[in-house]
Each structure stands twice: as structure tokens, then as C-alpha cells.
Design a protein around this nucleic acid. Structure first.
Lengths: 332, 332
DNA sequence: CCCAGAAGTGGAAGCGCTCCCACCTCGTAC
DNA sequence: GTACGAGGTGGGAGCGCTTCCACTTCTGGG
């Protein structure tokens, strides 16, 4: 592997000048820049990232931290969309993105050690849970970070973007109420995530405002199979439900399967609404009425929050909340 | 951030001894090791990876290269399973894994530059295509690598593991033939991938051996929607088909949708077989007869091939091929 | 025609770590 | 009692790069 020294020698300049020519090139004569470029070309020179980051104290790498089983990471379209946007935005800045999937347990310890170790300049955190306490840990480490979705603990110490899940859930539940449902159940997300608790809270708020009972609740896990199982429990314990708010479209797809098997017609016997609108909502039968989760915007904004920290522009935690948007289809 | 110097000073030893104590600890007295451990603890010392890898010329990081759209990466269970196994095996060796999703175009150039740059010690490549020529490129760079799935070009220069797709496709097609199908079509994978060409070749071999026509072929893209679209074309151009071999279960799921919409009963009107058996095959209606793709074994073996290179054990390319295994369900 | 300042350059000091090598202490075998 | 080797230890070089700073060369205005 050729080093900067060899490039400099071949170009007939000093190592310092070669370095300047390669990075940005300010304060370098056109002639020198040209010579260096040619030397780089002929030698096939690639800067040694370790040497560089040893002195710059940057790695030009950002971690995407996902404290979640890889099974879920690779099946929920939520992650695909998030990754896509984050990758695109960071690529423009020539930042490499590093996916850290950290299941609970000592995996989490490894991940934290890795983040503390200075391998990355910052982190985007997504799908975090109460127990991982990532907001607290990252704040303690002092690593620039941006959370997608409000952390349940330590939110005041970190930057984050969040959809207004409470409002979204309330509004979509109101669709059920308005169409005449009187016995409305919900399949929530995991209650150790803000998307789980907030959407349940919105559902509850809507029912209470309408004077309806709020006891038909089952916790789901944001997977399709989980939604199916939860729906079965719901049907068993509350056979009289005529409306169902599911905290994610993926779970709703599972719930539709269970409903079909139980012989309930949607939306005639029971109206169903989901949450997210990431593609599957249009493909279920019937297509789901749902709430648009502005993942693209959230991811973009999260990256912006992170970059602001990396640039040293900001240091006091900021949050950005996105308003919900209803999408009406035929399931309710 | 504390440095090794400070640790050494606090422990009352030299930097050299502290370094030895931290890495492995051979040739270090118990007393010294103890003192260093305590110093590390109280200072919260974490070694600087840049400094370390500058001298060791290792990064303890391995790239998982996926030249595929993130949309597919995050929707096909194939990747989830592969990632899972690779991560697990590498974690045991304390190797960090870095996911590089490189879409075609100049993304590919960025990825190659990154791999050439010495950011990683090796690469696992999965879902590669003819045009990316990754085998040639990686062989040229000289980076230790292992491919999951035989590369269509440059296979002789690299280590890889491969399922025997030809045999698998032939055998599963024979199921169709044995059950009496006489007009058998196929939806292939992308023909710029060995899994695409080989499975098509197996299908063709089986039909030719039985003296049946081999003209009902449509190329798919290994996605569910793609399978659905391909099936529609097939039904339009060859309405008389009574058997269908689909090169992946995900595409087969899409094909089943199209068949259902066309009013064909499976397996009575048309028998269908898939490929992969990664979970979805059991969940379609009817459940798919398919071929088991030994992804876990392949991934594990690929990692083993890579580790052998990293350890300097081997340097001449080797390949490992896995025999297919039929899984009979009700779709054929 | 001279001189201030801009523009370009190279020397050299590290960044934090590993590891070679020289050394120093013992215990043990003769 | 001497010699030797094993077990520990520390000094110091150097990995490849960026960047500070001092220096030289230009330029243009007075």
C-alpha cells in the first residue's frame, strides 16, 4: 500500500503539500495539485483511515443503532425506509454508515463499549426501548446522537424527532367512533416504547371523550404474527368488539388474518384502522385506513440534528415533532 | 479521554506493560495485571481503535457487502437470516460487522473505494450480480473475502459457498412432473445472479429429461410483487400451464396471489413449487412445496472461509457446495 | 523602486498505540 | 559457586497522517 510519502516524492512536493492537495486543496498551487493528483492516480493511493482519524479525531462514520432483534429489523418496512433515507442524506456528506443491531443482554454492553470507543462520530438511534436506557447512556458518553422516536427515559438529555403519536391515534380512533363503532378495542405496540404507549394513550383519549369503554386492550409486538395472536386474544375476551385500532399496519395485517379466520367481515362486522402507511396498508384486503408515519421526514430531520452536533453548531438538546396525517381506505 | 499513558502511570508500570496487560496479558505478572485492570476501571479507559489499528494493521471489522437495493435487503428474509448467522459467528471472535449496502451505479465505486481503503479486514459478499464484478474487484484488491452464492464471473479467484441450485431446481421440478403436470412454466430469479441461472437450468434439465416443452419462462426479480407480475405474464402467454416452478418462495407468494385472482386453484388446476423455505413457504395458502436453502450453513461456512484467510491459514480459493433438500407441503 | 502582505511551501511535532529489543531479576541445574 | 534460561519489565522506534509555524516567493500599491 502506497503512503502519502511516496505520493509526495513522486509528485515532487512535501508530504504537507500533498496532504493539503488531497484534502480540499486550499493554499495549494494548481501545478502542485495537478502533480499530486497524478501521483495519486498512478500509485493507486488511498489514505490510511486509521492514521487520518488518529490525528483528526474524526472517523467520518456514523452508527445507526437498532436495539432490536435482527428478525424484526429485517421484516418491518419501517427500518428499510429509515435506513434508506439516513443512508442517502449521510452519503451526501461522505459519511459512512454503520449498522449496529444490538439485541438485549450483553449485546447491548458490547454496543455501548463500541460507541464509547470512538469508532464513530455520532449515532442515529431507532426503535429503542425503555430498558436499554440508550438516551441516558449516550448522554453520559457524550456522543453526538439523534433519536428517531422519543425515548421513554432521558428524553430531555438528547436530540430526537417524534411523530405526534397521541394525536394520530386519537384521530384515527375517531374515525371508528364516527362511523358508529361503540365497542372499540386496540392492539398496542410494546409498552416499553413510546410508539406503544403514546398510540394507546391516543386511543384511550378518543374513547374517553366519547364516553366509551377502554378495557379491550391487548399488547402486541409490532410483528405480523404478534398482531394475529393479539387479535385472537381480543376476540376471545371481547367477542363483541365492532372496531379495532391496531398500533401498526404490520400487526393489522396479522389481525386481518385472524378476523378472517373468525369469520368477521371487515369493515362491516368490525372496522379496523392501522398505523404507519408504509406500503403494506394498501396491500391488505381490505386496504387499511391508517395514519401516515412521516418516517422519511423524521429520518431526514434526525440526520440534520446529528449533523448540527457534528458541526458544533448546537449542543443543547432539541426535538422536532411531526403532525399526523390520516389516510382513508376501506377497512374503516 | 484517558490514554494508555495515564493508565500506565496510575498503575505504576510502563506503557508497554500496560499494553500487554490489556491485550491478552502474557508475560505480565499477576500483580501488574491487577494494577492495570484497576487503573483501567477507575479511569474508564477505552483503547483508541485508530491508534491501535494504525500499528496492528487490523481493524477487527468485517464488511457484509450487499450490492442490492435497500428495499430488497430489508424485505427478503434471506438477508435477515444471513445477517443473523454471520453476526453471531463473528461476534464470538470479537469482530465487528459493518453492513455495506451498495446499489448499482457510483454507489458501487464508493463501496469499492471503502473496501480498498483498509477500513475492514475482510468481506462477506451476498446477493451479488454479474455486472458488479465484485469477485474480480475483490480479488484484485487482495482483500480477504467469502461469497455467499457463486459469483457468475471470477468465481475461480475467490472463496465461496453455494447451494446446489441446479440439482435442487431439478428435483423440485420432478415433483411437478411426477404428479402429472405436463405443461410446466417457471419464474426465474434475475439472470445476472447464479441463483437465477442455475435454478432455471435445473428446471430446464428436468423438463428435457421428461421430454416436455421448456418455453414457458419469465424472469422475475426475487420480490413478491415481481413474482406476481411475472405470473400474470406467464398466464397470459401460456394459459395452459398446469405446473409452475418459482425460483423463490417470496416470488411464489406473489404468484399465488396472481393465480388466485385468475381463478386457478392450487394445486388442483396448477401445482406450484417454490425455493428457499425460509418461513414464508409455510404461511402461504396453500403452504408451498419447496427446496430448503441452507442459508444458515452457507453463512456459517462462508464466515469460516473468511476466518481461515484472516488467520493466514489458507490463501488458495476454496468453495463449499451444499446439497438441496426437498420440503413437501400441499402446493404440489 | 521598495516594501507590506498574500500565496505557497516544507520541516517537524505529534496523535495513541504496539512491539522489538535490551535489560534485569530470579530460580535452578550442574 | 557459577552459569544459564525463563519470566518480567521499560525504553524507544515508528505506524501514516494532519497541521502548526516559519520561511520563501511573488504580487501590487505607494
Amino acid at each position: 500500500m502506497p503512503t502519502l510519502d511516496e505520493v509526495a516524492r513522486l509528485a515532487g512536493v512535501s508530504r504537507a503539500t500533498a496532504s493539503r492537495a488531497i484534502n480540499g486543496g486550499s493554499r495549494v498551487s494548481a501545478k502542485a495539485a495537478q502533480a499530486v493528483a497524478e501521483a495519486v492516480q498512478t500509485l493507486g493511493y488511498v489514505p490510511n483511515p486509521a492514521a487520518r482519524s488518529l490525528v483528526t479525531r474524526r472517523t467520518d462514520t456514523v452508527a445507526m443503532v437498532v436495539p432490536e432483534s435482527d428478525e424484526r429489523v429485517f421484516s418491518d418496512p419501517f427500518f428499510a425506509r429509515t435506513m434508506h433515507v439516513v443512508t442517502q442524506v449521510l452519503a451526501q456528506r461522505d459519511l459512512q454508515i454503520l449498522l449496529l443491531i444490538a439485541q438485549p443482554g450483553d449485546e447491548m454492553q458490547r454496543t455501548l463499549r463500541y460507541l464509547r470507543g470512538g469508532h464513530v462520530d455520532g449515532a442515529i438511534v431507532v426503535s429503542h426501548h425503555r430498558n436499554d436506557a440508550l438516551a441516558d447512556h449516550l448522554a453520559a458518553i457524550g456522543l453526538p446522537a439523534a433519536f428517531i422516536g422519543r425515548p421513554l427515559t432521558g428524553a430531555e438529555k438528547v436530540f430526537y424527532t417524534d411523530p405526534d403519536n397521541i394525536a394520530g391515534a386519537r384521530e384515527v380512533t375517531n374515525i371508528l367512533i364516527e362511523r358508529g363503532c361503540r365497542r372499540i378495542g386496540t392492539i398496542t405496540g410494546p409498552i416499553d416504547m413510546s410508539a406503544g404507549t403514546d398510540r394507546a394513550a391516543g386511543w384511550r383519549a378518543a374513547l374517553e371523550a366519547a364516553g366509551l369503554a377502554t378495557d379491550a386492550v391487548v399488547e402486541g409486538d409490532f410483528t405480523e404474527d404478534g398482531g394475529e395472536a393479539a387479535c385472537e386474544i381480543l376476540l376471545r375476551d371481547h367477542p363483541d368488539i365492532d372496531g379495532l385500532m391496531v398500533a401498526s399496519d404490520l400487526m393489522a395485517a396479522g389481525a386481518l388474518r385472524a378476523l378472517g379466520r373468525a369469520g368477521r367481515r371487515v369493515p362491516d362486522d368490525i372496522a379496523v384502522v392501522g398505523y404507519d402507511d408504509l406500503g403494506i396498508a394498501e396491500r391488505t384486503t381490505p386496504p387499511l385506513t391508517t395514519v401516515k408515519n412521516p418516517i422519511g421526514d423524521m429520518a431526514r430531520e434526525a440526520v440534520r440534528l446529528l449533523l448540527a452536533q457534528l458541526d458544533g453548531t448546537t449542543t443543547i438538546p432539541r426535538r422536532v415533532v411531526f403532525a399526523p396525517e390520516l389516510v382513508r381506505r376501506t377497512s374503516a
